[in-house]
Each structure stands twice: as C-alpha cells, then as structure tokens.
Design a protein around this nucleic acid. Structure first.
Lengths: 139, 139
DNA sequence: ACAATTATATTGCAATTAACAAGTTAAATT
DNA sequence: AATTTAACTTGTTAATTGCAATATAATTGT
C-alpha cells in the first residue's frame, strides 16, 4: 500500500480515514465485535464495504479475529494493541462534537460523556488503554 | 445535510471524514492558507476536490476566508474557532502514527514532535488553542 | 440425514467521488 | 494593451461506494 506522503496525519488518514473504518473501530470499543453486530449499527454499512474494511483493518494490524470455539461460524473481531491506541483519537473527536454540534446524541454517547466527566479525560483514557491492553495479555 | 446517525464520532466523520478535509485542516495549522499553497502540499489534491472541500469546510463553519486588501485576487483561508478546536484530534492522530508506523516522517513532522516533547502534549494544546483563539479575537 | 437457519462473503450494476487536463475569470503587473 | 497570477470551472475518465441479490459454510431442529 502506498501512502500519499510522509506526514503522520495523512498516513493515518490513508489507513483509517474513510467514511467507515473509524465507525468499526468505535463499534469495537463498544464491544460490538461480530459481522452481524456491525451490520446492525445505526449507520447501516453495506456488506461489501464491511468485508473490505474488516480485511483492511486486519491487514494493517489494527484488528484481529478468532473463531468461536463452540460455534465455528462466528468470528469475533477485536482491537489489537495498535487499534486500542486509537482511543484518544476517538475521545477527542467525541469531545469536539459535544462542544460544536447542536444535536441530540445517542443514549450510549450521552452515557459515555457522563463517565468521561466523572473520571476526567486523561484518567478515562489511561483506564481504557490499560484495561484493554491487560485483557490482550491475558489471552 | 443529513447525518448517518446521532453518534458524535460518526457525525464528525460525516463532516471531515473523507480523504481530504483533515489534510486541509492540517495545512491550515501549518499556516498554509491559500488555494495555491494547498495545491503545493505533498499529497497533491486535485483542483475540483480542493474547491469542493473548501466550500464544504466553510459551509460547516470550520474554515473562513477573507481577501487580501492589497491584492484582491488572493483569498486567505483560516480556521474558525470551531476548526481550531480540531487540534487535539490532529495531535492524537500524529502521536498514534509516531508510536505505530515504522517510517521516516516529513521534517516538519519531526520538528513538531520535538516541540511536542519539549512542551508536553497538554501544554502545547493549551498554547495552540489559546494563541489561535486570541488571534481570532484580535481581528 | 436433511431442510432450515445463521454468519459471513461475493457479485453485478448504478451512483458517487476522484484524478487529470484544459479552459475561464478577475485582478495585478509590465 | 498584453501578460501573469490566483482562484476557480468544466469535461473526460477511472476508481470507489451503495444497494440488492446471491453464494457458501457451519449449526440447529426434526
């Protein structure tokens, strides 16, 4: 894959800067982690794009998957360490939207803002990153 | 304009989540602020896309412009308060790339990392935001 | 065992977006 | 007046995306 330039911002955008990749990463942070759950998300991704983006995210080492032991037709997708580290980006995007968009947000987003205000941004980021990384270790 | 959902992340992506908008916003943070300077950026945006994205960013209130008093054919684009507040998103993207991408970055990016390490992320963000907002006030 | 169900993936076609090249307008310079 | 420069605009082609239908593979119910 060829990147447009040697700029860190543009290169990350070359990897996840399309209409859908960060939506899937958001879903993974919300513990939506199967193909059919991704399809159920309110943004209504289409199946060809979903397959394509999952492949690309796996290829870039941001997402991995393993099959359910009991029901082998199900794939569980999960963020790798590299993917988990995108959490601060998601948080900053979310904070920008709260500040600048005049709209009613999804209940899950409202809940997330409550947790964020309660714990503070930096604490929440530390907590989410260390929990997620720890859980990866435990596997 | 219709948003895909009421999620703060997806809505920001509906606004700037294409291949080019955040590149232009990055350029504006680097004081590239005219049509011809945007064209010179290493990612090589095409003219029709450039015009379209500038219009969209102006329409969303993230960018504004004014003409040069002495040379009225020149438009200077600049980030609005709303646009300036995207700085933390850009910073987090940049930090992710430094941590996870194995590549040689553009000299301007390297310089930016030095400043970042020197001042600390939070201080740099505070500084950039308050300087930029102050300069907006002064006009 | 076999039809039905579930999860995942592919294909075909229309619509949208992007790349590339050439042309246009309006102001500034010579 | 002619030329240059900045900022677009237009036209053509290529690539990407959206949408609907279909395919495959493993599982469940009978």
């Amino acid at each position: 894959m060829e990147y447009r330039s040697s700029c860190p911002v543009s290169t990350l955008l070359d990897i996840v800067g399309d209409k859908w990749s960060l939506i899937l990463i958001r879903d993974l942070f919300m513990d939506r982690n199967t193909y059919s759950e991704f399809l159920k998300s309110p943004e209504k991704i289409s199946t060809n794009i979903l397959v394509d983006r999952l492949k690309k995210l796996v290829h870039h080492g941001i997402v991995s998957f393993h099959r359910d032991e009991n029901d082998k037709k199900i794939k569980y997708y999960q963020l790798t360490s590299k993917g988990i580290d995108l959490y601060p980006v998601i948080i900053e995007m979310s904070l920008w939207s709260r500040k600048h968009l005049d709209m009613e947000f999804h209940p899950l987003a409202v809940k997330h803002y409550e947790v964020l205000d309660e714990k503070g941004k930096d604490n929440l980021i530390d907590e989410v990153l260390s929990n997620a990384h720890a859980q990866l270790e435990a596997e």
